[in-house]
């Protein structure tokens, strides 16, 4: 994994898309790894009693996949400074999430190169999450 050179990033650059097959295993693995034991994220019978047809992804896992989507692109020396999401339709077991995003701004601040990204993760019901993020990249050329 290499970190992008901030100087070569351009506004409107597209991030490589990320596709997640949202199986029950993906949902349960994310919920327990984030220590979210709410039954709607692991127990379909319970989810049904709450009016949901299936278990669905929890918000901490949503934020985790967004940070992965960002750093898979920007590299290990990128620091996630901010992730702001609007929560839309649920991500139910058996669905597929497609993450897309692009660079919306660049600036320099506190010895770092900042990059703003707008992104969304959609499924067959619509936008599951959409929002904006800020990454900080080292400014020195020829870094790791």
């Amino acid at each position: 994994m290499k970190t992008l050179d901030w100087h070569t990033i351009r506004v409107d650059d597209a991030l490589p898309p990320l596709r997640i097959e949202v199986t029950a295993t993906v949902i349960v693995a994310g919920a327990i790894a984030t220590r979210d034991f709410m039954p709607v994220h692991h127990d379909r019978t319970y989810a049904n009693t709450q009016g949901a047809p299936e278990i669905f992804m929890n918000i901490m896992t949503d934020n985790g996949y967004v940070s992965r989507f960002l750093t898979d692109w920007a590299g290990p020396d990128a620091m996630v400074k901010k992730i702001a999401i609007r929560l839309g339709v649920p991500a139910f077991a058996g669905s597929r999430l497609e993450y897309t995003g692009s660079v919306t701004g660049k600036s320099e601040g506190a010895g770092e190169g900042l990059v703003e990204v707008a992104f969304r993760a959609s499924n067959d019901l619509g936008d599951h999450v959409s929002g904006t993020a800020v990454l900080g990249l080292p400014l020195a050329r020829g870094g790791t």
């Binding site: 994994m1 693995a29 994310g30 327990i32 790894a33 896992t61 985790g64 996949y65 940070s67 992965r68 750093t71 898979d72 290990p76 020396d77 620091m79 080292p138 870094g143 790791t144």
Partner: peptide, 21 residues
Amino acid sequence: AAALEDHNPIYTDAAAAVASR
């Protein structure tokens, strides 16, 4: 990192993390 299949080495690879910012 395994649950989310996030292979960013700064989370689990000590040598890569030491070499990072």
